Simulated scan of single mutants.
Amino acid sequence: MQQLQQLQQIFQEMDRALIAYSGGIDSTLVAKIAYDTLGDKALAVTAVSPSLLPEDLEDARIQAAEIGIAHEEVTTQEMANPNYTANPVNRCYFCKSELHDTLKPLAISRGYPYVVDGVNGDDLHDYRPGIQAAKERGARSPLAEVGLTKVQVRQLAKFLDLPWWDKPAQPCLSSRFPYGEEITVEKLQRVGRAERYLRKLGLKNLRVRSEGDSARIELPPEQIKEFVLITDLPGLVAAFQEFGFIYVNLDLEGYRSGKLNQVLTPEVLAKAPAGV
């Protein structure tokens, strides 16, 4: 596979690399190839903050252990930045700024000349202000450099026998809020508890979008009918209200990645705060 060989060559030329490792399939694939190529000269580092579900952190630990790569955790403080918690359209810029301002000094102090992330080729064609923050701090994105798409990332992960090749995408919990609504630790925990409740029902690819006192459940369109028929809806509503929501809604369009970005018209983006 040509792109795998290209990725291996990239890491061979790096000689040592620190991986910004979230536990998602993109950064997990990067960690796998980095470890297979560099062995103990590769280090995976996971940023821990209120926007990361505890179970996602545990998944990252388990996956790193199975790959064999050295794994460490650092705490990031994006919630202390009002530019982040105000949730502007370029919120991710401030998140990735905090991440790489934490990882870069760590990499330098440990003798790693490169910080590497899991950005893929498709990400470059979406609105991802965090990519600029990473580039400004010298991070590299091998998957994007060789042009791997999201589908190809999963194909390559399956080819390499990664058990998590079909793991659903799980962006940070801050992505559950409409732009302009302030993000707090309490709101993040509320969303996290709601999504955890749904996963215990056997659902995997889902989102709980939070807006004010309302929760909006997004499921794959083909699962909506069965969900309504077999779920204890009064029990679900009672649980969500216990978490802190007042209203519980079901999105009839269904889950669609990046749905909150549909409000980002050119006019809105033109008014984005400084930092993009």
Rank of each mutant, 00 (worst) to 15 (best):
M1P: 13
Q2G: 10
Q2P: 11
L4W: 13
Q8F: 05
R16K: 15
A17V: 04
L18C: 06
G24I: 00
T28Y: 00
D36H: 08
T37C: 08
D40F: 08
T46I: 05
P54Q: 11
E58L: 14
Q63N: 12
E66C: 01
I67T: 08
V74R: 15
P82G: 07
Y84V: 09
A86S: 15
P88V: 02
R91K: 10
C92T: 03
E98P: 03
L99R: 07
L99C: 05
T102G: 01
L103D: 01
L106V: 00
A107L: 00
I108R: 14
R110N: 02
G111F: 03
V119F: 00
G121C: 09
L124H: 08
Y127V: 00
R128I: 01
A133Y: 06
K135A: 12
R137A: 05
S141E: 03
A144T: 02
T149I: 01
R154H: 09
A157V: 00
L162Q: 00
P163Q: 09
W165L: 06
D166N: 15
K167S: 03
P168F: 05
A169W: 00
S174I: 03
R176W: 09
Y179G: 04
E181K: 11
V185E: 15
E186A: 13
K187D: 11
A194E: 05
E195A: 09
Y197F: 15
G202R: 03
G202L: 09
L203Q: 11
E211I: 07
S214E: 14
E218M: 06
P220T: 06
I224G: 06
F227H: 13
I230H: 13
L233N: 09
G235V: 07
A239N: 10
A239R: 13
F240E: 05
Q241K: 13
I246H: 14
N249P: 02
L250R: 08
G254M: 10
L260Y: 10
N261G: 02
L264F: 11
T265V: 04
T265S: 15
P266H: 08
V268K: 15
A270L: 12
A272I: 02
